[in-house]
């Protein structure tokens, strides 16, 4: 049991560390930085190296919109959707797996040999 508890503590500490790494730049640089995407920064860099460069292709989906860019709200909807679908599937499976561990433990406690039961199947 103590091993599970230790793992739990380690996991919580690691997750908090992740949050801290993301939050600290915002707190320290919030006044000055724009926090744009690093891909846009690279785009600017390209234009500074080659001043005449214009992108030669634009995404078909972007052409629907008048100014050639996906409106902010729609873009955030799509990004949310991507994250939601991904985490939905991820935690659905994780939930099944954790439940399975629990059920197996219950079976063992009731004296049922899982290995044997599974090999019969």
């Amino acid at each position: 049991m103590s091993k599970t508890n230790k793992n739990r503590t380690v996991i919580i500490v690691l997750l908090l560390l992740c949050v801290a790494i993301a939050v600290i730049p915002v707190i320290t640089l919030g006044q000055t930085a724009a926090f744009g995407g690093s891909d846009d920064a690279a785009g600017d860099l390209i234009t500074s190296i080659d001043e005449t460069y214009t992108p030669w292709f634009s995404a078909p989906f972007e052409r629907i919109f008048a100014d050639g860019e996906i409106p902010g709200e729609i873009e955030s909807l799509l990004f949310c959707l991507q994250a939601a679908l991904g985490s939905g599937l991820f935690f659905f499976i994780l939930g099944r797996l954790t439940m399975r561990t629990k059920m197996r433990k219950a079976l063992v406690e009731n004296g049922i040999d899982i290995e044997k039961a599974e090999s019969v199947k």
């Binding site: 730049p25 926090f35 744009g36 690093s38 920064a41 994250a83 679908l85 991904g86 991820f90």
Partner: peptide
Amino acid sequence: AYTFVISALKVPSVTGSC
């Protein structure tokens, strides 16, 4: 699914961009 989620999350970084 993990790749799907994590590559959608833009996180702020020390250089002031995400």
